[in-house]
Amino acid sequence: MATEMPLLAVENLCVSFRTDGGVVPAVSGVSFSVERREILGVVGESGSGKSQTLLAIMGLINSPNAIVTGSVRFLGQEMLGLKRRALDAIRGRQVAMVFQDPMTALTPVHTIGDQIIEQIRAHESLSRGAARRRAVELLDAVGLPSPESAVDRYPHQLSGGMRQRAVIAMALSCNPALLIADEPTTALDVTVQAQILELIGRLRDSFGSAVILVTHDLGVVAEVADRVMVMYAGRVVEEGGKGQLFREPLHPYSWGLFGSIPPMHGPRPARLTAIPGSPPKLSQMPQGCAFGPRCGFRHEACAAQPSLGSAGGHRSACFLPREGRHELRRTLAGGVPA
Protein backbone atom coordinates (compact mmCIF):
# COMPACT_ATOMS: atom_id res chain seq x y z
CA MET A 1 0.00 0.00 0.00
CA ALA A 2 0.95 3.59 -0.51
CA THR A 3 2.48 5.07 2.56
CA GLU A 4 0.34 8.20 2.59
CA MET A 5 -3.35 7.48 2.18
CA PRO A 6 -5.36 10.69 1.95
CA LEU A 7 -8.00 11.24 4.59
CA LEU A 8 -10.68 11.62 1.97
CA ALA A 9 -10.37 10.72 -1.70
CA VAL A 10 -13.22 11.60 -4.03
CA GLU A 11 -13.00 10.22 -7.52
CA ASN A 12 -15.19 10.98 -10.48
CA LEU A 13 -18.17 11.79 -8.31
CA CYS A 14 -21.35 12.34 -10.30
CA VAL A 15 -24.74 13.31 -8.93
CA SER A 16 -27.75 13.62 -11.19
CA PHE A 17 -31.48 13.76 -10.74
CA ARG A 18 -34.21 12.15 -12.79
CA THR A 19 -36.81 14.77 -13.65
CA ASP A 20 -39.73 15.03 -16.03
CA GLY A 21 -37.38 16.69 -18.50
CA GLY A 22 -34.80 13.89 -18.40
CA VAL A 23 -31.77 13.28 -16.24
CA VAL A 24 -30.26 16.53 -14.95
CA PRO A 25 -26.63 16.53 -13.82
CA ALA A 26 -25.80 18.44 -10.64
CA VAL A 27 -22.23 17.23 -10.11
CA SER A 28 -20.15 15.86 -12.99
CA GLY A 29 -16.88 14.02 -12.53
CA VAL A 30 -15.59 15.75 -9.43
CA SER A 31 -12.31 14.41 -8.05
CA PHE A 32 -10.27 15.74 -5.18
CA SER A 33 -8.64 14.66 -1.99
CA VAL A 34 -8.24 16.06 1.49
CA GLU A 35 -5.19 15.42 3.64
CA ARG A 36 -5.14 15.22 7.40
CA ARG A 37 -5.33 18.60 9.14
CA GLU A 38 -5.87 20.35 5.85
CA ILE A 39 -8.49 23.05 5.23
CA LEU A 40 -9.89 22.84 1.73
CA GLY A 41 -11.98 25.76 0.54
CA VAL A 42 -14.59 25.04 -2.11
CA VAL A 43 -15.86 28.12 -3.92
CA GLY A 44 -18.80 28.37 -6.27
CA GLU A 45 -22.05 30.12 -6.96
CA SER A 46 -25.52 28.66 -6.62
CA GLY A 47 -25.93 25.69 -8.93
CA SER A 48 -22.21 25.00 -9.01
CA GLY A 49 -22.79 21.63 -7.36
CA LYS A 50 -20.73 22.43 -4.27
CA SER A 51 -23.45 21.60 -1.77
CA GLN A 52 -24.52 18.46 -3.62
CA THR A 53 -20.91 17.27 -3.57
CA LEU A 54 -20.85 17.55 0.22
CA LEU A 55 -24.21 15.89 0.65
CA ALA A 56 -23.09 13.03 -1.59
CA ILE A 57 -19.97 12.53 0.52
CA MET A 58 -22.10 12.39 3.66
CA GLY A 59 -24.61 10.02 2.07
CA LEU A 60 -27.30 12.62 2.66
CA ILE A 61 -28.82 12.63 -0.79
CA ASN A 62 -31.79 10.40 -0.31
CA SER A 63 -34.13 11.50 -3.01
CA PRO A 64 -35.36 8.39 -4.84
CA ASN A 65 -34.68 10.25 -8.07
CA ALA A 66 -31.00 10.86 -7.35
CA ILE A 67 -28.25 8.91 -9.07
CA VAL A 68 -24.88 9.06 -7.33
CA THR A 69 -21.87 7.38 -8.95
CA GLY A 70 -18.12 7.47 -8.53
CA SER A 71 -16.12 6.85 -5.42
CA VAL A 72 -15.76 8.50 -2.04
CA ARG A 73 -13.10 6.87 0.10
CA PHE A 74 -12.66 7.86 3.68
CA LEU A 75 -9.38 6.42 5.02
CA GLY A 76 -9.53 3.95 2.17
CA GLN A 77 -13.05 2.79 2.89
CA GLU A 78 -15.63 3.29 0.18
CA MET A 79 -18.55 5.33 1.51
CA LEU A 80 -20.87 5.34 -1.49
CA GLY A 81 -23.37 2.53 -1.37
CA LEU A 82 -22.50 1.71 2.21
CA LYS A 83 -25.27 0.14 4.31
CA ARG A 84 -26.97 2.58 6.63
CA ARG A 85 -25.54 0.97 9.76
CA ALA A 86 -21.98 1.06 8.46
CA LEU A 87 -22.45 4.61 7.23
CA ASP A 88 -23.78 5.72 10.59
CA ALA A 89 -20.66 4.34 12.22
CA ILE A 90 -18.66 6.92 10.24
CA ARG A 91 -21.07 9.83 10.03
CA GLY A 92 -21.14 11.98 13.09
CA ARG A 93 -18.15 10.14 14.49
CA GLN A 94 -15.31 10.48 12.00
CA VAL A 95 -16.91 12.80 9.49
CA ALA A 96 -19.21 15.52 10.77
CA MET A 97 -21.10 18.24 9.03
CA VAL A 98 -22.09 21.85 9.73
CA PHE A 99 -24.88 23.33 7.69
CA GLN A 100 -25.59 26.73 6.28
CA ASP A 101 -28.56 27.97 8.21
CA PRO A 102 -28.21 27.64 11.97
CA MET A 103 -31.82 28.80 12.33
CA THR A 104 -33.17 25.59 10.85
CA ALA A 105 -30.35 23.13 11.43
CA LEU A 106 -31.33 22.18 14.97
CA THR A 107 -34.45 20.30 15.99
CA PRO A 108 -36.65 22.93 17.65
CA VAL A 109 -38.17 20.63 20.27
CA HIS A 110 -34.97 19.39 21.92
CA THR A 111 -32.44 21.28 23.99
CA ILE A 112 -28.98 21.94 22.59
CA GLY A 113 -27.57 19.61 25.20
CA ASP A 114 -29.90 16.74 24.37
CA GLN A 115 -29.00 16.98 20.72
CA ILE A 116 -25.29 16.87 21.47
CA ILE A 117 -25.70 14.07 24.00
CA GLU A 118 -27.70 12.07 21.46
CA GLN A 119 -24.81 12.18 19.03
CA ILE A 120 -22.17 11.32 21.63
CA ARG A 121 -24.15 8.37 22.95
CA ALA A 122 -24.87 7.08 19.46
CA HIS A 123 -21.14 6.56 18.95
CA GLU A 124 -19.60 6.04 22.36
CA SER A 125 -20.72 4.04 25.35
CA LEU A 126 -20.85 6.90 27.78
CA SER A 127 -23.29 7.54 30.60
CA ARG A 128 -25.75 10.36 30.16
CA GLY A 129 -24.03 12.35 32.85
CA ALA A 130 -20.62 11.94 31.27
CA ALA A 131 -22.01 12.82 27.85
CA ARG A 132 -23.59 15.90 29.34
CA ARG A 133 -20.32 16.97 30.89
CA ARG A 134 -18.66 16.54 27.50
CA ALA A 135 -21.43 18.65 25.90
CA VAL A 136 -20.77 21.45 28.38
CA GLU A 137 -17.04 21.27 27.68
CA LEU A 138 -17.68 21.44 23.95
CA LEU A 139 -20.00 24.42 24.24
CA ASP A 140 -17.33 26.10 26.30
CA ALA A 141 -14.66 25.24 23.73
CA VAL A 142 -16.64 26.85 20.90
CA GLY A 143 -17.06 30.00 22.95
CA LEU A 144 -20.66 29.83 24.05
CA PRO A 145 -21.03 32.03 27.13
CA SER A 146 -22.19 30.25 30.31
CA PRO A 147 -22.21 26.77 28.76
CA GLU A 148 -23.63 25.28 31.97
CA SER A 149 -26.96 26.93 31.32
CA ALA A 150 -26.74 27.03 27.54
CA VAL A 151 -26.76 23.25 27.48
CA ASP A 152 -30.38 23.30 28.66
CA ARG A 153 -31.51 25.93 26.20
CA TYR A 154 -33.67 25.35 23.19
CA PRO A 155 -32.40 26.49 19.79
CA HIS A 156 -34.87 29.35 19.49
CA GLN A 157 -33.53 30.85 22.70
CA LEU A 158 -30.11 31.43 21.13
CA SER A 159 -28.99 33.95 18.55
CA GLY A 160 -27.87 32.85 15.10
CA GLY A 161 -24.20 33.01 15.97
CA MET A 162 -24.73 31.07 19.19
CA ARG A 163 -26.73 28.43 17.35
CA GLN A 164 -23.99 28.02 14.79
CA ARG A 165 -21.52 27.53 17.63
CA ALA A 166 -23.82 24.90 19.07
CA VAL A 167 -24.01 23.16 15.70
CA ILE A 168 -20.23 23.23 15.47
CA ALA A 169 -19.92 21.92 19.03
CA MET A 170 -22.22 19.08 18.09
CA ALA A 171 -20.22 18.32 14.96
CA LEU A 172 -17.05 18.20 17.07
CA SER A 173 -18.57 16.06 19.80
CA CYS A 174 -16.92 12.82 18.68
CA ASN A 175 -13.67 14.42 17.65
CA PRO A 176 -14.09 13.89 13.91
CA ALA A 177 -11.10 13.58 11.61
CA LEU A 178 -12.98 15.54 8.97
CA LEU A 179 -15.41 18.41 9.36
CA ILE A 180 -17.53 19.36 6.38
CA ALA A 181 -18.97 22.86 6.57
CA ASP A 182 -21.50 24.05 4.02
CA GLU A 183 -21.60 27.86 3.95
CA PRO A 184 -21.30 27.95 7.75
CA THR A 185 -21.18 31.73 7.95
CA THR A 186 -23.39 32.84 5.10
CA ALA A 187 -26.45 33.37 7.26
CA LEU A 188 -24.47 35.31 9.87
CA ASP A 189 -23.42 38.92 10.29
CA VAL A 190 -19.81 39.84 9.51
CA THR A 191 -18.72 40.34 13.08
CA VAL A 192 -20.19 36.95 13.99
CA GLN A 193 -18.71 35.45 10.85
CA ALA A 194 -15.32 36.64 12.02
CA GLN A 195 -15.85 34.83 15.32
CA ILE A 196 -16.90 31.59 13.61
CA LEU A 197 -14.03 31.68 11.12
CA GLU A 198 -11.59 32.18 13.92
CA LEU A 199 -13.16 29.18 15.64
CA ILE A 200 -12.85 27.00 12.53
CA GLY A 201 -9.22 28.03 12.18
CA ARG A 202 -8.60 27.03 15.78
CA LEU A 203 -10.25 23.63 15.30
CA ARG A 204 -7.33 22.26 13.40
CA ASP A 205 -4.95 23.21 16.16
CA SER A 206 -6.99 21.97 19.09
CA PHE A 207 -8.92 19.07 17.57
CA GLY A 208 -6.62 18.19 14.68
CA SER A 209 -9.55 18.04 12.27
CA ALA A 210 -9.35 18.50 8.53
CA VAL A 211 -12.02 20.82 7.16
CA ILE A 212 -13.84 21.13 3.87
CA LEU A 213 -15.28 24.63 3.84
CA VAL A 214 -17.79 25.41 1.14
CA THR A 215 -18.58 29.04 0.49
CA HIS A 216 -19.44 31.52 -2.21
CA ASP A 217 -17.19 34.10 -0.56
CA LEU A 218 -13.59 34.23 -1.73
CA GLY A 219 -12.79 36.39 1.26
CA VAL A 220 -13.74 33.60 3.63
CA VAL A 221 -11.52 31.19 1.72
CA ALA A 222 -8.59 33.59 1.79
CA GLU A 223 -9.11 33.79 5.53
CA VAL A 224 -8.91 30.12 6.50
CA ALA A 225 -8.18 27.72 3.64
CA ASP A 226 -4.90 26.00 2.73
CA ARG A 227 -6.05 24.84 -0.64
CA VAL A 228 -8.87 26.07 -2.86
CA MET A 229 -11.13 24.42 -5.38
CA VAL A 230 -13.38 26.50 -7.67
CA MET A 231 -16.52 24.88 -9.00
CA TYR A 232 -18.75 25.94 -11.87
CA ALA A 233 -21.83 24.20 -13.27
CA GLY A 234 -21.15 20.93 -11.47
CA ARG A 235 -17.44 20.67 -12.29
CA VAL A 236 -14.16 21.66 -10.73
CA VAL A 237 -12.69 24.37 -12.96
CA GLU A 238 -9.61 25.22 -10.94
CA GLU A 239 -7.74 23.86 -7.99
CA GLY A 240 -4.60 24.96 -6.27
CA GLY A 241 -2.85 26.15 -3.15
CA LYS A 242 -4.40 29.28 -1.71
CA GLY A 243 -1.39 31.44 -2.53
CA GLN A 244 -1.16 30.20 -6.12
CA LEU A 245 -4.85 30.53 -6.77
CA PHE A 246 -5.22 33.97 -5.25
CA ARG A 247 -2.05 35.41 -6.74
CA GLU A 248 -2.32 33.89 -10.17
CA PRO A 249 -5.69 32.37 -10.90
CA LEU A 250 -5.71 30.34 -14.11
CA HIS A 251 -9.34 29.98 -15.11
CA PRO A 252 -11.29 32.83 -16.74
CA TYR A 253 -14.18 32.08 -14.38
CA SER A 254 -11.93 32.64 -11.39
CA TRP A 255 -10.79 35.90 -12.98
CA GLY A 256 -14.41 36.92 -13.29
CA LEU A 257 -15.09 36.03 -9.66
CA PHE A 258 -12.16 38.11 -8.44
CA GLY A 259 -13.21 40.98 -10.68
CA SER A 260 -16.75 40.87 -9.33
CA ILE A 261 -15.74 41.52 -5.76
CA PRO A 262 -15.42 45.18 -4.87
CA PRO A 263 -12.04 45.77 -3.20
CA MET A 264 -11.79 46.89 0.42
CA HIS A 265 -8.39 48.57 -0.12
CA GLY A 266 -6.99 51.05 -2.54
CA PRO A 267 -8.71 52.89 -5.34
CA ARG A 268 -12.22 51.96 -6.29
CA PRO A 269 -12.62 50.84 -9.90
CA ALA A 270 -15.16 52.82 -11.92
CA ARG A 271 -16.87 49.58 -12.85
CA LEU A 272 -16.53 46.04 -11.58
CA THR A 273 -15.38 43.40 -14.03
CA ALA A 274 -18.64 41.49 -13.88
CA ILE A 275 -19.10 38.18 -15.67
CA PRO A 276 -21.76 38.69 -18.33
CA GLY A 277 -24.84 36.47 -18.44
CA SER A 278 -25.81 34.01 -15.76
CA PRO A 279 -24.77 30.44 -14.88
CA PRO A 280 -26.35 27.79 -17.11
CA LYS A 281 -29.45 25.99 -15.95
CA LEU A 282 -28.58 22.43 -15.05
CA SER A 283 -31.23 21.21 -17.44
CA GLN A 284 -29.76 23.23 -20.33
CA MET A 285 -26.04 22.65 -19.98
CA PRO A 286 -24.11 24.02 -22.98
CA GLN A 287 -21.98 21.73 -25.10
CA GLY A 288 -18.30 21.68 -24.30
CA CYS A 289 -16.96 24.04 -21.67
CA ALA A 290 -19.92 25.12 -19.52
CA PHE A 291 -18.36 28.53 -18.96
CA GLY A 292 -17.91 29.07 -22.71
CA PRO A 293 -21.01 31.21 -23.29
CA ARG A 294 -19.89 33.71 -20.61
CA CYS A 295 -16.18 33.58 -21.40
CA GLY A 296 -14.36 36.36 -23.21
CA PHE A 297 -11.61 33.98 -24.35
CA ARG A 298 -13.75 31.33 -25.98
CA HIS A 299 -12.26 29.72 -29.06
CA GLU A 300 -12.77 26.60 -31.23
CA ALA A 301 -11.25 24.21 -28.74
CA CYS A 302 -13.88 25.16 -26.17
CA ALA A 303 -16.53 23.13 -27.99
CA ALA A 304 -15.04 20.12 -26.23
CA GLN A 305 -15.13 19.50 -22.51
CA PRO A 306 -11.84 20.65 -20.96
CA SER A 307 -10.30 18.34 -18.40
CA LEU A 308 -8.81 19.49 -15.15
CA GLY A 309 -5.53 17.77 -15.86
CA SER A 310 -3.88 15.44 -13.43
CA ALA A 311 -0.77 17.39 -12.62
CA GLY A 312 -0.67 18.06 -8.91
CA GLY A 313 -0.41 21.54 -7.51
CA HIS A 314 -2.22 24.16 -9.48
CA ARG A 315 -4.59 22.90 -12.18
CA SER A 316 -7.40 24.37 -14.25
CA ALA A 317 -9.93 23.05 -16.74
CA CYS A 318 -9.28 25.46 -19.60
CA PHE A 319 -7.93 25.14 -23.16
CA LEU A 320 -6.05 28.44 -23.07
CA PRO A 321 -2.29 27.96 -23.21
CA ARG A 322 -0.89 27.96 -19.71
CA GLU A 323 1.80 30.47 -20.55
CA GLY A 324 0.63 34.01 -20.86
CA ARG A 325 -2.64 33.61 -19.02
CA HIS A 326 -1.77 36.34 -16.60
CA GLU A 327 -1.31 38.72 -19.53
CA LEU A 328 -4.67 37.63 -20.94
CA ARG A 329 -6.30 38.36 -17.62
CA ARG A 330 -4.97 41.89 -17.66
CA THR A 331 -6.78 42.55 -20.91
CA LEU A 332 -10.10 42.17 -19.10
CA ALA A 333 -12.03 45.40 -18.69
CA GLY A 334 -11.30 47.12 -15.44
CA GLY A 335 -7.83 45.70 -15.31
CA VAL A 336 -6.13 43.79 -12.56
CA PRO A 337 -3.77 45.13 -9.97
CA ALA A 338 -0.31 44.38 -11.28
Binding site: P145, D189, T191, L197, E198, D217, G219, A222, R247, I261
Partner: peptide, 26 residues
Protein backbone atom coordinates in the same frame (compact mmCIF):
# COMPACT_ATOMS: atom_id res chain seq x y z
CA UNK B 1 -13.39 49.60 13.10
CA UNK B 2 -14.51 46.14 14.23
CA UNK B 3 -17.00 45.85 11.41
CA UNK B 4 -14.38 46.96 8.93
CA UNK B 5 -11.78 44.51 10.15
CA UNK B 6 -14.25 41.62 10.22
CA UNK B 7 -14.75 41.73 6.46
CA UNK B 8 -12.81 38.84 4.95
CA UNK B 9 -10.61 40.10 2.15
CA UNK B 10 -10.04 37.93 -0.90
CA UNK B 11 -6.37 38.72 -0.97
CA UNK B 12 -3.56 36.63 0.45
CA UNK B 13 -0.87 39.29 0.36
CA UNK B 14 -2.53 42.34 1.90
CA UNK B 15 -3.98 40.81 5.02
CA UNK B 16 -5.26 43.25 7.61
CA UNK B 17 -2.65 43.53 10.32
CA UNK B 18 -4.83 42.82 13.31
CA UNK B 19 -8.37 41.61 13.34
CA UNK B 20 -10.67 43.08 15.96
CA UNK B 21 -13.04 40.31 16.98
CA UNK B 22 -15.98 41.67 18.93
CA UNK B 23 -16.98 40.03 22.15
CA UNK B 24 -20.41 38.59 22.60
CA UNK B 25 -23.59 39.10 20.68
CA UNK B 26 -25.61 42.02 19.53
Amino acid sequence: AALRSAVPVPDVDNRPAQRIVLKGDL
